[in-house]
Design a protein around this nucleic acid. Structure first.
Lengths: 215, 215
DNA sequence: TAGATTGTTAATCGATTAACAATC
DNA sequence: TAGATTGTTAATCGATTAACAATC
């Protein structure tokens, strides 16, 4: 395996490849070409080959990629050949939804603890997990070997929660609050912000204003 | 206003600028420089100036940008100087969460209808909205002037729902299901996929496997 | 005036795509 | 063998950043 700095764009495509490969496997497709993949995923075949070639020679000239083998390799690259433990803070509707969303994630990641600052939430059950108070976060992260933290609290509390996660030793954070978190460089943060998505979508609407303009 | 093809990267940053500007406004800050903004948002000041300059001369040399004026301009660019009507299909936990997530979106967008294919869901109330059957989607989209559709159904149903949205005349779709949707070129789709985010985060974890490796 | 900061051009950097020898 | 398809190099394209004249 080569050691080179892999761009974020490449890393973000790997889960997309993986997902489609799993589907192919389920349909008992044994082999797939970069051509096929590109067609399905709306990507340039050369890009797919190049992405994969960063990590090794996974294909066979004239043949393509062995589906099962490639799945195994991508899971290894993404460190998903183990079960990653995840903690979540914010037992609101969104937190609830994500806990249940284990559908096809469950072989690779598992939400093993849920926390909330609100006393009324503590002790309730979500998906067989007892909602814990924030005071238990640090110990639980260590005991349960939680490596990724999910933040589904209001924007005003997100930074504080992030700091507690970092303090407890979490290595990466997925943040759903619409704020930019400040964390040390060794902690990776991705922000999954619904409002940013919605607002940028609006840009692409046609120009005729259908409602009474405010301006 | 110049007419030039604006890259998606630029469009995705505009809502981030807007959000921070709103916060500045609330704190009664009158003026902001690209320097200040860059610091807060982790972006290069030149990039911010360039992004804004695509759309007009909004700043003043030696001074910076007037916060209120820039807010107004960005809202106009993003077509958020009107209230955009939104429809949602999939009244599960995630759909529920998004309906409630109107917090700071409510001046710009409004979810005005919720649909679900499951009979057991139809007729229940979410945030004062009656969940409607899919058979009412087309008419409601037209009557309510719904321009953006949100999809929060299982992956297997997402494509079918997208087609119904497109058929009904929706201009853009925000898709939460982990699939790549096929829609005509005039419809814009953004995919907000939780699993892709989580899986790509795992790549950045440290290399020591903390659980018993599967491999 | 002096200091600050924009808008914009030019330079740099990085990512995508094309092309093709190697080879199954 | 002929056709298909990889891995990789070179070409292209696009996005980010630096630099600076204009000017508040």
């Amino acid at each position: 395996m080569k050691t080179l700095k892999i761009s974020e764009a490449v890393v973000r495509r790997l889960p997309v490849y993986l997902r489609h490969l799993m589907e192919l496997k389920q349909r008992e497709v044994l082999t797939v070409s970069s051509q096929d993949l590109g067609q399905k995923l709306d990507l340039n075949p050369a890009q797919i080959r190049k992405d994969l070639a960063y990590f090794g020679d996974f294909g066979r000239k004239g043949i393509g990629y062995d589906v099962s083998y490639l799945i195994q390799q991508i899971r290894h690259i993404l460190k998903l050949d183990q079960i990653i433990h995840v903690g979540l803070v914010g037992a609101g509707k969104l937190g609830h939804a994500l806990c249940n969303y284990t559908a096809y994630m469950k072989d690779n990641m598992r939400i093993v603890a849920v926390f909330d600052a609100q006393e009324s939430k503590v002790g309730t059950e979500i998906n067989n997990l007892r909602v814990q108070p924030m005071s238990e976060l640090a110990d639980t992260v260590r005991e349960q070997k939680i490596r990724i933290g999910i933040i589904t609290v209001p924007a005003s509390e997100a930074q504080h929660v992030a700091e507690q996660f970092v303090e407890a030793g979490v290595e990466a954070i997925l943040n759903f609050a619409p704020v930019i978190l400040r964390v040390p460089a060794h902690v990776r943060v991705h922000t999954a912000d619904f409002t940013t998505d919605m607002f940028s979508l609006a840009y692409y609407l046609s120009d005729d204003r259908k409602e009474a303009p405010v301006e």
